[in-house]
Computed example of a mutant assay.
Amino acid sequence: MRIALLHGWGFDAGVWDALAPLLPGDLVRMDRGYFGAPVDAGRPDLMIGHSLGAMLLARRWSDVPLVAINGFDRFCGVDAVAPRVVQRMAKRFGEDPAKVLADFRAAIGADPAPAIASPQRLGEDLALLADQTPAPEHGARLLVLQAEDDPLLPPELRRTAFGGAGAVCESGGHLLPLTQARWCARAIAEFVR
């Protein structure tokens, strides 16, 4: 089984360091190239996306099974994050990308980021977070894994992401692939059976 993994905004393929060794199959850690060279993948048998990575994967291959970890099909809008939050972040990003990234990562309990290699890509993907377009329906199987204590995603967004087809962990914040890797691996193993 070929599995494509894609991280969220402000991260890289290192977000999978704890979870990847627990997964079966041929893994391709895609990378948006925020901090180094981008890595893409061909069509997989299963997609696993963290945060924005889940949205990007769902829109790229709507007919491939998807595991969305701390993920969403749209970030802003009704029952989601207020668009002004991302607009304010984007304005600040234009003035000081490193500061915005550092503040974001600190707010979700992440380690400091490496040096930014592509502020343009980070900025483009930040704009994607502001997109309020309703997500196209995902035509394949879905598993949504969320954390009750996620500081980034409002409760209503966690409940309704991808139609609410998911499981909730009490703790782990917005970094479940790192903080709850075994829980995620068990849920994924059940999903792929």
Rank of each mutant, 00 (worst) to 15 (best):
I3A: 08
L6D: 01
A13T: 07
G14W: 03
W16D: 12
W16T: 07
L19R: 00
L23K: 04
L23R: 03
G25L: 00
L27H: 10
R29N: 08
R29S: 10
M30W: 06
Y34G: 06
A37C: 05
A37D: 13
P38K: 00
D40H: 12
P44H: 07
H50S: 00
S51W: 03
M55G: 03
L56Q: 13
L56Y: 06
R60Y: 10
S62F: 11
V64A: 10
P65F: 12
V67F: 02
N70S: 12
F72S: 05
D73G: 04
F75K: 01
G77I: 01
G77Q: 03
A82W: 05
R84D: 14
V86T: 13
A90G: 10
A90Y: 08
A90D: 07
G94R: 15
A98R: 14
V100A: 04
L101T: 00
A106F: 01
A107V: 07
I108K: 09
I108G: 02
G109P: 07
I116L: 14
A117S: 07
S118E: 03
Q120T: 14
R121K: 14
L126M: 04
L128T: 09
L128K: 05
L128M: 11
A130W: 05
D131M: 06
Q132Y: 03
P134Q: 09
A135I: 10
A135E: 07
E137Q: 14
H138N: 13
H138L: 11
L143S: 10
V144K: 09
A147H: 07
P151M: 05
L152Y: 08
P154R: 08
P154C: 12
P154S: 08
L157T: 00
R159Q: 15
R159D: 15
T160V: 14
A161P: 09
F162R: 00
G163T: 11
G166E: 00
A167Q: 15
C169D: 14
G172M: 02
G172C: 01
G173T: 07
L176I: 04
P177I: 00
A181M: 04
R182T: 14
R186Y: 11
V192G: 10
